[in-house]
Design a protein around this nucleic acid. Structure first.
Lengths: 145, 145
DNA sequence: AAGTTTTAAGAGTATTTTATCTTAATTTAA
DNA sequence: TTAAATTAAGATAAAATACTCTTAAAACTT
């Protein structure tokens, strides 16, 4: 069950990494981060660029440059990240991929799927990046393969 | 949120279609089904071939041939279909795509995601094709875009 | 038996997603 | 002020997924 694209996987991992580091270092070097997380540098750069352009991050070029949070991760919900990286219709889609599926013309899976999707959204809407990120520090949770 | 591949989407839609038709017609013509459901004939044929080889369906060639249930849809769970079309590891995967993620080295999303995934699996494990398919007949639920 | 219909199987093509390469712009530091 | 480091941006390439085409095999119809 692949729910997130690589873009979101990498983006979330990078953000969680940044949450863990933000005490010691405000701007995080993308090259270093890409090496630590074993993610393609150019690909990661592009993902973080999107988050920067959307205002979630801020960036600085040149030596000792990098990206930093523009909004406190206490105020960033997981759903915000996913909406930015996957698009606004992320939680709207029909399980069977039927474009016309909705309340008016529901597919056989509509109600069934709506309940599951609702639970998932509920979780994503009530969890902040900071909450998720703290657990990386407290326990020995891993961000790296 | 694209959870299923096109293969599974098409396969499920076809099976639900067959459930709805099985009273009047045992063997369902793939060509006709592909037209009714607006799915590429060759692609659908291949998907149904897999289900036939796996023993879920049985097929008949020649005029008035087609595919029919080899197992009663009362005894087919949604999870059976998904396991066949998506692979056995469908419900095992990490949300962040980390290959090493598991109880021993959980990623930050591990528990969070495990709960959602469990609820989803529970639903797929306790719903039969027949149950899902009956609703297509009883109400005016749609299988077609 | 011949011709037609239909599923089976594999090769080939197209589209989308993921990843890389190259060049430019910005900033620091010597 | 020059060189090095770093993000920005766009073009290109590789890989995965989705789809199509062609030929074969089986079964029916006449």
């Amino acid at each position: 069950m692949k729910v997130l694209s690589k873009t979101s996987e990498y983006g979330l991992r990078a953000l969680l990494f940044m949450v863990g580091k933000r005490q010691e270092q405000e701007y995080i070097n993308i090259r270093e981060m890409s090496e630590q997380l074993d993610i393609s540098f150019h690909f990661l750069t592009k993902i973080l660029q999107n988050l920067t352009q959307a205002g979630m991050l801020t960036s600085y070029r040149g030596p000792s440059g990098g990206v930093a949070f523009n909004v406190s991760p206490d105020n960033i919900l997981l759903i915000d990240v996913i909406r930015l990286l996957e698009g606004d219709d992320f939680f709207e889609k029909c399980l069977l991929g039927l474009p016309g599926c909705g309340e008016k013309a529901p597919c056989p899976m509509h109600r069934f799927w709506g309940e599951i999707r609702g639970a998932l959204r509920q979780e994503f809407e009530s969890t902040t990046l900071a909450q998720m990120g703290e657990s990386v520090l407290k326990s020995r949770l891993r961000l790296v393969p």
